[in-house]
Computed example of a mutant assay.
Amino acid sequence: MMLIQVLGTGCAKCNELEKLVKAVVAETGSDATVEKVTDLKQIAMMGVFTTPALVIDGVIKAAGGLPAEKDIRAWIA
């Protein structure tokens, strides 16, 4: 099972990324768990210093902005 983590403190872009990731997971039928990480210490310990960020199975895929939906689909596929 894939672990997808959306990192952010709750800003509009962070919330938008979470919704987008959940929609892509639902549409693709991916066997993935989507987790929202809001704790700044935990986010920093993961090596992320700008949010929103997207981490898939421990690998930072995007940070500091909203990635394109097509990129998210490719990373989840």
Rank of each mutant, 00 (worst) to 15 (best):
A68F: 05
K36E: 05
A53G: 15
I76Y: 07
T28P: 00
V6G: 02
D57I: 14
A44Q: 13
A68H: 12
A74D: 13
M2P: 10
L20R: 10
A68R: 15
A23D: 13
G29Q: 07
V55A: 08
D57W: 13
K19Y: 00
T33R: 14
K13D: 06
D39M: 10
A63E: 15
A23M: 05
G65W: 03
T50G: 02
G64V: 07
S30V: 09
L40C: 03
I43Y: 06
L7M: 07
G64D: 07
A12T: 10
V34K: 11
P67Q: 06
D71E: 15
V21D: 08
K36D: 01
A77I: 03
P52S: 08
R73W: 03
E18Y: 00
V6W: 00
L3F: 05
C11Y: 09
A44T: 14
Q42S: 15
E69L: 00
G65K: 13
E27F: 02
R73Y: 05
V37H: 08
A23H: 08
R73D: 06
A62K: 07
K61A: 06
R73K: 10
I43K: 03
A74S: 14
N15M: 05
K36H: 13
G64F: 08
V25H: 11
K41E: 07
P67T: 04
D57E: 14
G47T: 12
T9H: 11
G58T: 12
D31R: 14
M45C: 02
L3W: 06
W75G: 08
T33N: 11
S30W: 00
D39K: 12
W75N: 09
I60F: 12
G10R: 14
E69M: 00
T28Y: 03
G47K: 10
I72Q: 14
M1Y: 08
G65P: 02
A53D: 04
I43P: 11
L17E: 01
V24H: 01
A53M: 06
I60H: 12
I72S: 14
A63S: 15
I56A: 04
L40W: 10
G65E: 03
V24I: 12
K70P: 01
L7R: 02
K36I: 13
Q5T: 09
A63I: 08
A44M: 14
G64W: 08
A62C: 09
L17Q: 02
M1R: 12
V6L: 00
K22V: 01
V55D: 09
V59I: 08
V25G: 13
M1C: 05
P67H: 06
V37P: 12
A44K: 12
L17H: 03
P52M: 06
L7T: 09
D39N: 15
G8H: 07
A63M: 11
V21H: 05
P52F: 09
V21S: 09
T9M: 10
G47F: 11
I56S: 05
A62W: 01
A74R: 15
V6M: 00
V37R: 02
V37G: 12
K22M: 04
A26C: 02
D71W: 07
G8K: 02
A26K: 08
G29R: 03
A74I: 11
T9S: 15
A74E: 15
K61E: 06
G58H: 13
C14T: 07
T33D: 12
K22W: 00
L66C: 05
A23G: 07
K70R: 13
L40G: 01
G58I: 10
A63H: 08
E16K: 00
G47N: 11
K36M: 11
